[in-house]
Design a protein around this nucleic acid. Structure first.
Length: 127
DNA sequence: ACTGTGACTTTCA
DNA sequence: ATGAAAGCCACAG
């Protein structure tokens, strides 16, 4: 059952591990986890802005960190990062990545206008 | 420890 | 509508 999971006491009582990720998996800061959790809360067929995600994560005003956290997401992560766009309803990713995100959103029913923008009034978070 | 950078937001002109 | 400035914080060098 535990399979050598009790390795927390390693010298100092530092719950903060920075060894990349040994075996457990807990290596990222709680802030990132909150951000990822908030993104997962975004319902399918809807998009949220970085500011909204930050707020859902309990980090009002830290929209920038949301972008950084999503950028740090590994490929194939279960986090629907594509549902996060900027406050203008536009994709903040550079060229190629933007098209990739746009395709994913379109697959979820999100519509884009000629300028490549999303109507947050329709596809934004309810409320 | 310090500096620069960034998938940002909001406000003001 | 566009643009600049300030605010915000984590990570990398």
């Amino acid at each position: 059952m535990k399979s050598a999971g009790s390795r927390a006491s390693r010298g100092r009582g530092a719950p903060r591990k920075k060894d990349g990720e040994a075996e457990g998996a807990v290596s990222v800061s709680p802030t990132y986890l909150e951000i990822y959790a908030a993104v997962e809360r975004v319902p399918c067929g809807c998009v949220a802005t970085y500011g909204q995600v930050a707020r859902l994560a309990g980090l009002p005003g830290r929209a920038r960190q949301v972008g950084y956290a999503l950028h740090a997401l590994p490929p194939g992560s279960p986090i629907p990062w594509q549902r996060v766009v900027n406050a203008r309803g536009e994709i903040s990713l550079p060229g190629a990545s933007a098209e990739r995100q746009r395709r994913l959103l379109r697959a979820e029913g999100i519509e884009f206008d000629e300028r490549g923008r999303i109507n947050l009034r329709r596809f934004g978070l309810p409320g």
